[in-house]
Structure formats: structure tokens, C-alpha cells
Design a protein around this nucleic acid. Structure first.
Lengths: 337, 337
DNA sequence: CTGAAAGCGCTTACAG
DNA sequence: CTGAAAGCGCTTACAG
């Protein structure tokens, strides 16, 4: 199965021109059905493999999409973005496209270095998966290529983005807690860390507002510093009856802490998470949380990206992908006093 | 920053030929230092970006490596291979290479379809990350490209592979248990599922042999069916004093089961895992296990792959990458009776 | 030190 | 329905 077979080799064997072979293999008009068949058969027999590089050069398309994930989201135990990348890979397949993963190193983000895939013209578009610094966002905007944000957005940046509907998810989840009789509900997350955390907080707040419950400062607990490193948080006293955590991992940590302190979950205190990732099912009680629809996010992102490539200049704005509550065992119905 | 700037554009502005520009930008001999400088500066100013596709076509190299992961290793909660992929990506960067991830779908594995990256000549080599069926291995061998196995191997296939030293790791771990006074030690894993599980078993067995302890059939417990789906296993009675599990996830499940049945770990029963992944630290007691050196594996694999690309026909055989025991809290020292 | 020519493998008009 | 010509952007001999 020697494989430097080219279209010309096939053409010569058949006594036709390489133009005809090209047309036949691409199922274009202008070749008789019979000849087309013969060409395809011979191509198969000769082990012909298409040379994408040649097509690339002609068309100016690489058929690759660059997916850039900031390093800090890729540590051990953090596989959420890698799973999104996997779905992206899948979706791209259907368009004859491939994904190229680029982990954005901390230094490169600080020193504002664009990924080398850009300078090498390796990709037709960029998906930035995970929030980066403002200056880096500006740098990204200067790139002369279709680009979009996935799983975050930035108010000031005029770039298309696909995000989970964090706001609505947290809103629904808080509504659910209230429907279960809870009135004293805390939120856990550093409001200045990412826009996801912010939006989830706002959904929580909207639910409080609608139910005329006060927002209490001492019930908004920071879980990490501004660099995203988890901190040991202090629990308010008296304890609220429920915690809305900005993600499952934090909910997981919180439940462990509560149990360590002698509380029972959910009997003494209910806890909900967000993301429906591994952490949600790795603890007893398993966590009630919001499932992010990774597949749909990837699908929407790639669909939009493909349109942006074929119709340069097309815009989509901020697309929200709805999640859904996954009911498990970490919420207790409150008896009214 | 318009970017259809080509070498010729730069050449024309400077009144030189594109050959000279090519030489200058590639730091080759045959251009005066002064001209070289001027060319590089202008290239920067004009926002020139290299067209890899053109180089590709000329050289017949794509500067991509395909990484193929069978679907069944990529479910939610399974991020080990994705993390290896991430490291591979990193390593490739240093060689000016990029990774293209291909998830091998179950159907494609069964129907023996090679990944499309192969037919599209998108890659210069393949890394098969995770065990596939024998017929698929044979199919892979028929590909006219450098290829290697990562994290598994196959006796009959004459392909280079890089694997953790599973045998030695399990051997050491079992030795450690024996040194702690254990004599009744079970192994957990389906011996017919993957070669990793087999080799770890053999390491365990070697340790038993060396210490003249009998291998007891009822103490080799299957954890999954031949398709890799976990099964609920029955515990032998009386219980051994220690379990060597073929991976952390299984150890994690086992500990949960033991606790549910009222046993204390490690007081009543010691458990060790393998891999040092998330599962190892997500349970109390945290697991003593063997840490796999992901970085070293990726480094070794890519180094070899690069040599195989530049020196077609070069062979490395089966390279073992040593892990190391991570001591935690799931092993109890036995008092001699 | 510099450049004209040829070619990598394909596709896109265009002509027959 | 079929094909000769030109070109995508670069690099590799080779000549000056």
C-alpha cells in the first residue's frame, strides 16, 4: 500500500487527464458516470489518499480550527474543557474539519503572545475556550480570522460567544430551593473571578428578588482568590439552610467541610452545585445540580464557526445554551416553622 | 493587519526576489545579514504569516500528528487519556508540530474504518492512545506511516510502544504490602480486558512468588466484563487483608463497597490502586497508589515519533516508563499474629 | 550574495 | 463529456 499515489498517477493509468480524475473523485459534473466509476475503483485499488495540503493551498483554507484553552483550566482533575474539546472534535468531523488543541501557557497569556497556530496559518478560525485576561482578549480581536468565545463572554469585546445560560440555571435552581421551603440561602463563589460565577450569582439574586428575600452580604461567600486558587472559606453563623454553589467542585468541597464539622447534608443544610460533572456524583449525598449541555454547546459553536468561515463577517452575538436541573439527594424539603 | 501577505509581496516592496525572502525568513545562508534584517523587519510590519500549507506540499510533511483515542476511554469522568493528549500537544509544540485528536468511534473500530485523518493525509504519524481490538491493530499496521502505541502494547504487533511499567509498579506495590505484614492479598481486575491489567496482575504475582505466597484463584476478582463495563463484584469470604486494584477508580469503588458493608479501611482491610488519578484523593482514606508519569510518557513518545518521521524505518520497540509509589492512608501495617 | 526556473498536487476557469 | 493552461505560496537545486 505505497502511498505517494497522486491523481496524475491514476490519470496516466487510465489514459485520461488529472483534471478528469479530480472531477471524478470530487463527484463533480463533467465526467461520464462510467468513467467516474472506473476512476474511483482504481483510486481505491491503488491506495490513493487525498492530499489536503494541495487543496489547502489552492483554496486558502486549512480545514483546521484552533481551540485555545488557558493552562489554568487544564490541571489534573479539571477535565471539563477537555471534554468540551472532545465534543468539538466530534462536531468538526462532520464538516471535514479537524481541531487543533492549543494550551495557552500562563506566560504567553501575560506576555500577550498569540498561539503559534496563528502565525503558521494552521487554522481557519479560533475558539477560545475559557476566560482570559482583558488585554489578551483585545489581542485576540486583532487576529484577522473568524473567532469566538466558548463558555465565557466579555461585555466589551465584540466577539461572538456561546455560553451556558448560567443566569437562568442558577435562577431556576434557587427557585427550586425556595419552592422546597428554604428562605435562608447563601451563594458561594468569588464574584470577581469569572463571568460564569457572576451570572450564576445574578440568577440566584433574581430569584431572591422575585420572592422578596433579602440579599445578605455575609451570605455571599468567596471560594477562591482572584487568580482562581481555592481558599478555605469561613462559614457564616448561624448557618443558612441552603447553599447555592457556583460549581460542583466547590459544592463538593463544601459538603466535605460541613460533614467534617459535624453537620448532616441535607438534613441540617442543603447544598446545590452547577455543571453536573464528576464531583456531583462522587460524594454522599450526590448533588442536585445543573447539567451543562456540552454537546449542544459544541454543536452550536461549530455551526456558527462554519458559517463565519463561509460567510466572513457574519455575526451571531451571544448565544445561550440552556442547561437542565439534575435532581439528586443534596436538597431537603424544609418544614415551615 | 490584513493577512494575505506573501513572500512575494515582501520581495516586491524591497526589490528583491522571493527566493531571497524565503532564505532570510528561514535563516538560511545566502543572504547578507543586512538584507536579512530588513526583510524580517518588513515581514513583521506587513503582518506576514507563514503559509504552512505551501511548505507542506513541497516537503510532503503536514507537521501534524494524529492521536487516536478509542471512544470508550473518553466518557465523562474518564479524563486520563485526555490529559495525556494535552501533554502530547505540549511536547509537539517544541518540534513545530501539532496534535490532531481523533476519537475512534465504536462502530468505526468494529467496522475497521481507519480515521479520516489518514485518508486526508492530514498527519505525518499516528499515536494510538488506548487499547483497540486485534483486527483494528492489524489494520493500523497496514498504514503507510510512522505509528506507535501509547499506554498499551500488543505482543503480536510489531509496532513501537510506550507504556507505564505496569508490571514493575504492581510488583513494588505488592512488595510494599508484604513488607507491611500482609500475607492474604487479593488482586482486582479482569485479566482478559487489557494488557495493563494483565501486566499489573503479573507484577502482583511475581511478588507473591518471590515471597512464596500462594496465588489463590478466589482472590483474583474480576471488576468488569470483557467490554470494559464495570460489574458488581462479589467479595470473597473470609476477606483477604489487602486488595491490589488494577486502577484507582476500581479501588475507589471497592473502598466504597467495603465501607457500605461495614468494614473499615484500612483498619480491617487495606486497599491500593494504580494511576494516581482523581479517584485516589476523592475518598477517605486517600489511596496509596502508583503515580504514572504522564509527562515522561508523552515526552518519550513524541521524541521517538520525531525520530521515526525523520528516519523512516527506525524502531524503538517497547519502552517502559517507570512510575512511583505514592504513599497515602489506605494501607495498614499488620501486626504479626 | 542573489535570482530564474521548476515543481510540490491539486482546482478553477475556460476552450474544444 | 474531456483536457490544456495557469496558479495557489513556497523551496530546492542550480547558475551567475
Amino acid at each position: 500500500m505505497k502511498s505517494n499515489v497522486t491523481m496524475r498517477d491514476i490519470a496516466e493509468k487510465l489514459g485520461v487527464s488529472s483534471v478528469t480524475v479530480s472531477k471524478a473523485l470530487n463527484d463533480k459534473d463533467g465526467v461520464s458516470d462510467e468513467l467516474k466509476e472506473r476512476i474511483k475503483t482504481l483510486a481505491g485499488e491503488m491506495g490513493y489518499r487525498f492530499n489536503t495540503a494541495a487543496k489547502s493551498m489552492k483554496e486558502g483554507l486549512t480545514y483546521n480550527i484552533g481551540v485555545v484553552i488557558p493552562e489554568r483550566f487544564t490541571g489534573p482533575g479539571q477535565s471539563f474543557y477537555l471534554h468540551i474539546y472532545q465534543q468539538i472534535s466530534r462536531e468538526l468531523e462532520q464538516y471535514g474539519y479537524y481541531g487543533i488543541l492549543h494550551i495557552l501557557h500562563r506566560e504567553d497569556e501575560e506576555q500577550l503572545n498569540l498561539p503559534r497556530i496563528y502565525y503558521d496559518r494552521k487554522v481557519d478560525g479560533f475558539i477560545l475556550l475559557g476566560q482570559v485576561s482583558k488585554p489578551y482578549i483585545e489581542l485576540v480581536q486583532s487576529m484577522d480570522l473568524p473567532k469566538m468565545f466558548l463558555d465565557f463572554y466579555d461585555e466589551h469585546a465584540d466577539i461572538d460567544s456561546v455560553v451556558t445560560d448560567n443566569f437562568y440555571g442558577a435562577y431556576e435552581l434557587t427557585n427550586y430551593l425556595i419552592a422546597q421551603g428554604h428562605r435562608d440561602i447563601a451563594y458561594v463563589g468569588n464574584l470577581h473571578s469569572t463571568s460564569s460565577i457572576q451570572d450564576r450569582f445574578l440568577g440566584y439574586y433574581k430569584s431572591l428578588l422575585e420572592h422578596r428575600l433579602p440579599l445578605r452580604n455575609e451570605w455571599v461567600l468567596s471560594d477562591r482568590d482572584d487568580e482562581g486558587v481555592y481558599v478555605d472559606m469561613e462559614l457564616p453563623q448561624p448557618l443558612p439552610t441552603a447553599f447555592v454553589c457556583n460549581c460542583d467542585q466547590v459544592a463538593y468541597n463544601l459538603v466535605q467541610k460541613l460533614i467534617a464539622l459535624g453537620y448532616r447534608v441535607p438534613e441540617d443544610c442543603s447544598v446545590v452545585g452547577f455543571d453536573n460533572d464528576v464531583y456531583a456524583t462522587l460524594i454522599v449525598p450526590q448533588l442536585t445540580t445543573v447539567g451543562v449541555d456540552i454537546e449542544q454547546m459544541a454543536r452550536t459553536a461549530i455551526e456558527s464557526m462554519m458559517k463565519k468561515i463561509s460567510h466572513p463577517g457574519s455575526r451571531f452575538g451571544r448565544v445561550l445554551v440552556q442547561g437542565h436541573i439534575v435532581y439528586r439527594d443534596s436538597v431537603q424539603r424544609m418544614e415551615r416553622p
